[in-house]
Nucleic acid binder design. Structure first.
Lengths: 217, 217
DNA sequence: TTTTGGTAAACTGTTGACAGTTTATCGGGC
DNA sequence: GCCCGATAAACTGTCAACAGTTTACCAAAA
């Protein structure tokens, strides 16, 4: 992290902190000092405070008069995160099946085929800031055309999932299984069957949940 | 609104603004000036800024370099709010059916019976800051024991719904119908049937959605 | 060696001021 | 009478400093 020059200092600081947390520079549970962060970014505490407040409840938790810490996951928190995700993504898939434009599913399928070849040729070892899986889910969240749901998924759920994913191994074979489930979802989207699309997505999220929880001690 | 004396000025300001928006003192679409609000509350702009930032995306929308406005609802936004609500409350009902303690349903039923007598004796004309309907839904959100979902429902969805409810009339007969649907939900919670509880809740939310949308021009 | 008490540093909450931008007002031109 | 541009007021973004609290450290006592 080096000095800030861009547009709005607060927004810039916000993205820097997100980046630092997502990338692992800031560990879960670590305290973030306003003053020190302001020094490192070369700005005053005002915009930093603003940025940290925007992250509250999403990536950091705040204790009055004490400070801000990066959120940390126990099994309980992770399970609850998956409940939220199942509800939101299920609805997103339903709405996408109902309202998304015709060419959407084709593009989504193309995205998926490209990703599956990636997996085939390089295994799971590739480090990407946004995984193919995440791209797929983001595309559906966008296609839901529901700003509320989209916002919560993009700004809270996926961020928190990345914190967890970066630090815990995945179950072997899960990627292949996930790919199959993705194709299930696509099939229901293509059929314009909202109920089935929702259920396919929810089954996929539930499977991901059990996989994540099982590798977690 | 008068001068602030309490604990944390920012939190105090936050609640004052929420109160002002919910109660109708601040109209939807109205611009909120940081400076003027700070003057009215007798504090400096710092805590006010903080409070308004915490409200961003929930009760106000911010445009850089211009300011914050109270969110305003079109049909599109209201519909999307109900989509979000259906997803979250459906999952909340499912979790409540699965995990809520045994005495929860009894208390919920007692709450509902008390409310139904309220309706019978005084019609819909009673003005309460929290409606009986809202109490019912809040109780289930709490019983879901899922902090994520609870937080979004309590801090975003219900606030936004109140903004809308306060300003638009309800369809005649809807209260009675809603009460019946509430008893349906209770029945499924009592039966500890997660899937049916979720579907009953979702049907209830969908009915509320159609009712709200139909009275909206 | 461990515990306890006190002091000092660090940090959060808050304030008032400054800079640049947006918005409103008002006078002139068509 | 209506539209347009210049000036002024208001406002947001940012900063540096102050006050009160928390935390860390260190020395003295058990």
């Amino acid at each position: 992290m080096d000095r800030i020059v861009g547009t709005s200092l607060a927004s810039e600081a916000f993205e820097r902190v997100v980046e630092a947390i997502i990338s692992g520079e800031f560990e879960p549970g670590q305290k973030i000092s306003e003053a020190e962060l302001a020094r490192r970014l070369g700005i005053s505490r005002g915009p930093v405070r603003e940025a940290l407040h925007r992250l509250e409840g999403r990536l950091v938790s705040r204790v009055p008069r004490i400070g801000v810490r990066v959120i940390s996951f126990g099994q309980t928190e992770l399970r609850q995160l998956y409940y939220l995700r199942e509800a939101l993504e299920g609805m997103a898939a339903r709405l996408a099946a109902e309202f998304a434009p015709d060419n959407f599913v084709d593009e989504l399928e193309a995205l998926l085929l490209r990703d599956s070849s990636d997996i085939a040729e390089s295994g799971q070892s590739v480090y990407r800031q946004r995984s193919p899986d995440e791209d797929f889910h983001i595309a559906i969240a966008r296609a839901s055309n529901c700003e509320n749901i989209q916002r919560i998924l993009l700004n809270e759920v996926y961020y928190q999932l990345r914190i967890h994913r970066l630090r815990s191994s995945r179950k072997p074979g899960r990627a292949d299984q996930a790919l199959k489930e993705h194709f299930d979802i696509i099939a229901q989207l293509k059929a314009r069957n909202p109920g089935a699309a929702e259920e396919a997505m929810r089954a996929h999220v539930r499977a991901a949940r059990e996989s994540s929880l099982s590798v977690m001690s």
